[in-house]
Nucleic acid binder design. Structure first.
Lengths: 135, 135
DNA sequence: CTTAGTGTACTATATAGATAGTTCACTAAT
DNA sequence: ATTAGTGAACTATCTATATAGTACACTAAG
């Protein structure tokens, strides 16, 4: 995983773990990696990894048991709640940004329907621009 | 304007000025406020304001003439170029985020079509949650 | 020339973030 | 009791950001 320099690393890792829960890759009750393992996986400092778990616990996403590890909160509704929360957050931000540029919802639908931009780069895909917004 | 603590202020001001150009509030050739005026308008430090113009110049959006001020580059295509650039950037990010949550384009269209969430708060709008994503 | 307004450059201070390294406290297994 | 693995708590250093304040160089207008 590569980090965006304009956002704290620990926040990006927090978001990534929440994404894994929301998308069903990690489940409520699952044990998360130890601070030291997490640091290795994301190539970050163990202190930064510990901070990730402190934030997740503060947000009610994870539970920490000293000496035992950190676990995803065992709440069957957790996945659905987080999926809705994150999707709504992304959508609200997108609509806000596009409105700031002068686009109304109707135009957003047209742009998204025509969107074929950067579809997951693969090895063979040399990534020629292809078509984007023609508005 | 209020700033997001998780992003450098100068970057947020840069984006705001580019948004004004893309949406047609400010036009190519227009004179931008002086560093000191900009600092007053955004309630930031004059040094931070100067940095904003350095970034805008580096990005080819503005031209600085020492002793005279900073101007939006006088290119008739600038507005269109920036509008496309910013809209594509926002859309690409949105699609990427939602795909990470497991949503395909078809679902995005449904979510956006049903979206009525946080429409620009006005004085009368007390901001009750209203309906959001029901996925 | 003088003045006002411009961008630029510098010193200094303060804070947040990230790193490195060490140590401690708790838990489970042996 | 010992050991290994866990989170937590420190000290220290470094960088980026933002602030305050001062000074300088250039431009146009008087």
């Amino acid at each position: 995983m590569q980090f965006d320099a304009s956002l704290p690393i620990y926040q990006q890792v927090v978001t990534d773990i929440k994404r894994e829960i929301a998308s069903g890759t990690v489940h409520p009750g699952d044990k998360l990696p130890s601070c030291r393992d997490l640091a290795v996986r994301y190539r970050i400092n163990p202190n930064t990894a510990a901070r990730v778990y402190q934030v997740l616990e503060a947000q009610g996403v994870a539970e920490t048991r000293r000496g035992m590890g950190t676990y995803v909160r065992d709440d069957p509704q957790l996945k659905g709640t987080m999926l809705r929360e994150m999707a709504d957050g992304y959508t609200a931000q997108y609509v806000r940004e596009m409105r700031g540029l002068g686009f109304e919802r109707k135009e957003l639908l047209k742009i998204l329907a025509a969107w074929d931009g950067p579809e997951e780069q693969t090895k063979e895909d040399t990534g020629n621009g292809k078509g984007k917004t023609d508005a």
